[in-house]
């Protein structure tokens, strides 16, 4: 589950003057024609760097995202939910596996990526720095965070890098089941007992700001990334994704008799655009820079898992084996 909102930072130097102009022109022409770039193909360094960064963040978001939901595997109420919650979180870990492989095709090993995650050098979706206090939080994540992720991922699946697009196609197919599962669980709470409804409304109130943050700062505040748009690395703007999400899901939320904690939220009949109160973007920056409610806890769990598993990985190392970069 990945919203893509925190991928792009200002590109200080493109380094494009160092690239072979003929090769660069051919590369751009291929993308223009809608061709996919494959691991062995020529690509500018900036493209490689930005893609590694994006796919790596996406992969990290999957394994970190497994943590808030994972705590509800052992608490899921009843056999149906217990099995579905297990399968759902397992899928997320599987997505990480696919994505780390896709990023590896660009020359960075899984170990290096995980090390950068643990050291705080590499980011993941901000939304997973918020706690899942109740079962209802976990259902809201399954429905709406997965829904948001699908909006972003379907856009990115049309991007230019072959291995990432193929991973995203598989991921989106699974996420659409998560969304159905999440929706079903939310509907059960929304149409359930007063305690269940209250639990759900409170969870929705808690998750609204992180959900609005999920797609990243508004376009007018965002870093200009024209070259990444041209290279089909970034496929939709933050605001486009957010609008699409609001358009698809706010009516469904209201249909269930639930409210959203933004009195300004409505669709402008003339423009067809959703209008809303800007969420606190200072909070977004604070959380992304490490000062959110769960940043330290999430990284500590990941770090502990790495430390506890180190002996297994060490024992499996073979002096005869050499590292081979995967091709897809």
């Amino acid at each position: 589950m990945y919203g893509g909102g925190n991928t792009f930072e200002p590109i200080k130097a493109t380094g494009l003057e160092m690239e072979d102009p003929a090769k660069l022109a051919e590369f751009e022409a291929r993308i223009e024609r809608g061709e996919k770039i494959e691991p062995q193909d020529w690509m500018p360094n900036l493209y490689r760097k930005q893609l590694i960064r994006m796919i790596e963040q996406h992969a990290h978001s999957e394994i970190i995202g497994a943590l808030p939901e994972g705590t509800w595997i052992t608490r899921a109420p009843g056999f149906r939910r217990k099995l579905a919650q297990m399968a759902k979180v397992q899928d997320e870990v599987g997505h990480a596996q696919l994505l780390y492989s896709a990023a590896e095709t660009l020359g960075k090993s899984r170990e290096d990526m995980i090390t950068d995650l643990i050291n705080g050098k590499s980011k993941y979706s901000n939304i997973f720095n918020y706690p899942a206090f109740t079962w209802a939080d976990s259902t809201v994540i399954s429905w709406l965070v997965d829904a948001g992720a699908i909006v972003n991922q379907i856009a990115n699946a049309k991007g230019s890098y072959g291995p990432y697009c193929r991973a995203l196609d598989r991921i989106c197919a699974e996420e659409s089941f998560h969304l159905k599962y999440g929706h079903d669980a939310v509907v059960h709470l929304a149409t359930g007992t007063p305690i269940q409804r209250k639990m759900l409304q409170e969870a929705l109130n808690r998750w609204w700001t992180p959900l609005m943050h999920f797609f990243g700062p508004p376009d007018k505040m965002s870093v200009h990334t024209e070259i990444l748009v041209k290279w089909k690395v970034k496929m939709a703007t933050n605001d486009e994704c957010r609008q699409q999400f609001l358009d698809m899901y706010v009516p469904k939320i209201w249909e269930l008799g639930l409210s959203l904690p933004d009195p300004k939220l409505h669709k402008n009949a003339e423009t067809g655009e959703w209008e809303y109160t800007e969420p606190d973007w200072e909070e977004f920056k604070r959380v992304i820079n490490g000062d959110g409610p769960c940043n330290a806890e999430r990284l500590a769990v990941r770090r502990t898992a790495e430390e506890r598993g180190a002996w297994v990985r060490k024992a499996l190392l073979s002096p005869k084996a050499t590292y081979v970069t995967p091709l897809a």
């Binding site: 394994i63 994972g70 297990m86 870990v93 898992a305 180190a310």
Partner: peptide, 29 residues
Amino acid sequence: NSEWTGIGPILEEDIAFSSMAQDKVGQSW
């Protein structure tokens, strides 16, 4: 076994333990 989801020594083992957990809970059901 499901408690390993997210914290296994390698991702492939998170996934394997989760699969087996799902089978076992399904079998108990």
